[in-house]
Design a protein around this nucleic acid. Structure first.
Length: 415
RNA sequence: GCGAUCGUAGCUCAGUUGGUUAGAGCGCCGGUUUGUGGUACCGGAGGUCGGGGGUUCAAGACCCCUCGAUCGCCCCA
């Protein structure tokens, strides 16, 4: 028989298993717990949306829309896109379902996103994010609360040290437009001194020149006008409320006036949580205010703030996870013992005790497996034990073994 | 999309200036006799050297293409 070739995984996808999976689920579980503490409701969202949902809201000229989306035509001829981010889809859902009635609405989601990029460590074509949004709140308190949430999440994950919150404001629409015009003028004047990349950015996304890493761009970017000079008094006041709120809550932040966002919908607050432990993929959580997004989807003016965090990136920062084994592993030996063990395991599991049993093997094999699985105890049930209504329980750590009445198993294993 | 490095057993790697049947450690499987693991000893399986083409009497080692990973750039979480 001709050997068929084993299919390759799709480039940029991951099969997450073992320790990596442990990290992944710890991030998600912590997020789910903390999000409830802050009153965020969960949402389950479609993985694909009409292409227009993303194309309109993110901005046609952004890299995400112009070259990174997984877009395709379905059998009905509609153009669909695998979500490259959460925010746009959540806003679409908000409008589709009339969630205005719940405003202000705190929502959280997590799951896979898709972007056709060159894979690297911490950057995949199918990657996973946590997402938190507060929709229908134009108050600075929403920005503050959202950042407190982010701060607590990192603390509970034990990775707050070494991660800094960089904060900036992009001002309201007028401020942003005026500043943008001034930037374009400034960069236009030094056009021939800019790097090729930045000359390109000047057309597509001039704000991005500000945080260029290109050496030759730095003097020009550093000399560029600051947003501060263009902020309306309202925008200035808003940013002051955010920073004062953060200070009051004890959330540390640093101003980075060169921090901008790549997507068009951002206004006012923009922030990133950055670490130096992940190389080029140092941004672990980022977001900002997007007061203009709903309108770009044809909805009413609806102020909102949100952030997203990379699950893989957060997971990589976590300490070595302890791979815990089950509380007990059963070893049945002899006639009728296997079904008795199965029944006992059912009772223990209903009492919240984790246990397992190998499907085959002699005593020695099963002991080895129990040990390798990191089990706390081994429960041996042979014909003698069964006849006497007991089980031999061995503590694999200490090596102690004693006979326990079957009714007392829960107690004996619960330690 | 651009540049660089790399790709040998499940994993981490060694394979001298191209030269006989490609190695180690860990892991896996089995054994050191009866219902007791973690240690030790013995044995075994497992690789068309990422894939394809080329140079050569001879290639895992050299050249080209391709796929993939990693690191920058870009972008972004």
């Amino acid at each position: 028989m001709a050997k068929i070739q084993t299919p390759q995984p799709v480039r940029g996808t991951q099969d997450i298993f073992g320790e990596d999976q442990e990290r992944f689920s710890r991030v998600v579980e912590t997020f789910e717990r903390v999000r409830r503490l802050y009153g965020f409701k969960g949402v389950e969202m479609p993985v694909f949306e009409p292409t227009a949902v993303f194309a309109r809201s993110l901005g046609e000229t952004t890299d995400v829309v112009s070259k990174e989306m997984y877009s395709f035509e379905d059998r009905g001829g509609d153009s669909l896109t695998l979500r490259p981010e959460f925010t746009a889809g959540i806003c679409r859902a908000f409008l589709s379902n009339g969630w205005q009635q719940h405003v202000p609405l705190k929502l959280s989601a997590h799951g896979p996103l898709f972007r056709y990029e060159r894979p690297q460590k911490g950057r995949y074509r199918q990657f996973h994010q946590l997402d938190a949004e507060i929709i229908g709140a134009g108050e600075a308190a929403a920005d503050v609360e959202l950042l407190c949430f982010a701060d607590q999440l990192l603390r509970e994950l034990g990775i707050a040290d070494g991660v800094t919150l960089q904060l900036n404001t992009l001002g309201d629409a007028e401020s942003r437009d005026a500043w943008r015009a001034a930037l374009v003028e400034h960069f236009q004047a030094h056009r021939d001194q800019l790097s090729d990349d930045s000359r390109d950015r000047l057309e597509r996304n001039p704000l991005r020149i500000l945080d260029s890493k290109e050496r030759q761009d730095r003097p020009i970017a550093d000399a560029a006008p600051d947003i501060d000079a263009y902020l309306s008094s309202e925008a200035k006041e808003f940013f002051a409320q955010v920073t004062e709120g953060l200070d009051a809550c004890g959330v540390a932040w640093t101003r980075n006036s060169r921090l901008v966002r790549g997507l068009d919908y951002y206004r006012h607050t923009a922030f990133e949580l950055v670490t130096d432990r992940l190389g080029a993929q140092g941004t672990v959580l980022a977001g900002g205010r997007y007061d203009g997004l709903m309108e770009s989807l044809g909805g009413p003016h609806t102020p909102a703030v949100g952030w997203a965090a990379g699950i893989e990136r957060l997971g990589m920062l976590l300490d070595e996870p302890a791979m815990g084994g089950p509380d007990a592993i059963f070893i049945p030996l002899g006639e009728g013992c296997e079904s008795a063990a199965m029944k006992l395991m059912g009772e223990l599991r209903r009492s919240g005790i984790s246990c397992d049993m190998a499907y085959k093997g002699n005593m020695k094999k099963r002991m080895q497996k129990a040990n390798a699985a990191g089990a706390a105890h081994v429960v041996i049930i042979g014909e003698n034990e069964l006849a006497n209504g007991v089980a031999a329980v061995k503590n694999l750590q200490s090596g102690d073994q004693r006979e326990i009445v079957l009714d007392g198993l829960v107690e004996a294993l619960a330690e």
